[in-house]
Simulated scan of single mutants.
Amino acid sequence: MNQIKTVVLLALLSALLISISYWVIGGTWGAVIGVALAAATNLGSWFYSDRIALSAYNAQPVSYEQAPGLHNMVQQLCDRGNLPMPGIYIIPTQSANAFATGRDPQHAAVAVTEGILELLPEDELEGVIAHELTHIKNRDTLTQAVAATVGGAISALANFATYAMWFRGSGSDRGPNPLGLLLTVILAPIAATVIQLAISRTREFSADAGAAKLTGNPRGLAQALQRLDSNARQLPMGANPAFEPLLIMHGFSGQMMSNLFSTHPSTEARIQALLKLEQQMSV
């Protein structure tokens, strides 16, 4: 059922991309270009989702010699979860965050920031890594990367539509539709975000639960989320907002990110779910 929901939501994103292209470019050619753009975006993100996401956050590969403790932690969790060892990357920023990416467990990567390595004690960092490995095991990483890439294309077209409203040609039936351009500028980013929310939010709860079971320590991840939430308010992680759903913690500060348009469930709700799971596991 979850896979069917994902396919439907990704199809909606692609349809939105095609519609925007039709409105921005105008006429049949606009629709054709939209179909080609949607196909290229989906296929490109399928095969290169790991490179796209890692590049978006300037993540750098790290060898065993450079970070033996991190490599050993990931390897032990992979052994417990029956997963192949992913690539290990470090993001050069003091913001505390992490994400996983890749089209399948055989082509996956886990990236952590320098900040999270300094902020979290070992048991809490283990919970974060287990969360990301659960995303890989559930194949959430591909879905999130495709949604982020298509969402980024929609945002780019919406920005282009802003300029098209000023420079569109006059007196041509094949030109951009003025009403379509206006709707694109106003509604397209909101629609893309809402669709991404439907993909992202439930998967975060599922990955939290999977991490708790993998480590046997729900409270460790709960404490980590509390620290990460506090850190995000002080040191927001700057990057393309389209890729924010990949992160374990929303990357931007402010009350807006804790309301309806956040790509993540509230930290309080995630912590409560983990503490409830701890009670169930202790029975």
Rank of each mutant, 00 (worst) to 15 (best):
L247H: 08
L214R: 08
I129E: 06
T28W: 15
G127C: 04
E122Q: 14
K5F: 09
I18D: 09
V110Y: 05
A198F: 10
G87I: 02
P178M: 05
V74I: 15
A239G: 15
S206K: 15
Q226P: 00
A192L: 02
P61C: 06
S95T: 10
A198D: 00
A158D: 04
R270V: 02
I129H: 07
R174C: 10
A59P: 09
E124P: 03
L37F: 03
Q234G: 03
R233P: 00
F167I: 14
R80A: 12
A56W: 00
A211Q: 08
P121V: 04
L54H: 07
F261E: 03
E268V: 10
L277C: 02
T101P: 01
L10G: 04
A53Q: 07
R103E: 08
N72H: 14
R233E: 12
S266I: 01
Q60N: 11
H131S: 09
E65F: 07
E132N: 07
A98W: 00
N2H: 11
L197A: 10
A198N: 03
Q255M: 05
G102F: 08
Q3T: 14
Q76N: 13
Y64C: 07
A211P: 11
A15I: 15
V35E: 03
Q106N: 13
Y64Q: 11
Q272R: 14
P84E: 09
A209D: 05
A198I: 02
G87E: 04
A212T: 02
T6S: 14
G169P: 02
F160T: 11
S19I: 13
A11I: 12
S230V: 05
D229R: 05
P105W: 05
L221Q: 06
K276I: 06
A31W: 13
D79N: 14
I20C: 09
S19A: 15
P245A: 03
F47P: 04
W166A: 11
Y64W: 06
L13G: 03
P178V: 06
E114P: 03
R233Q: 15
I129N: 07
L125C: 10
Q234M: 11
L125I: 07
Q196D: 00
A269G: 02
T6K: 10
L277S: 02
K213C: 04
T41F: 01
A148F: 01
A39G: 10
L10N: 07
E244A: 15
S170N: 12
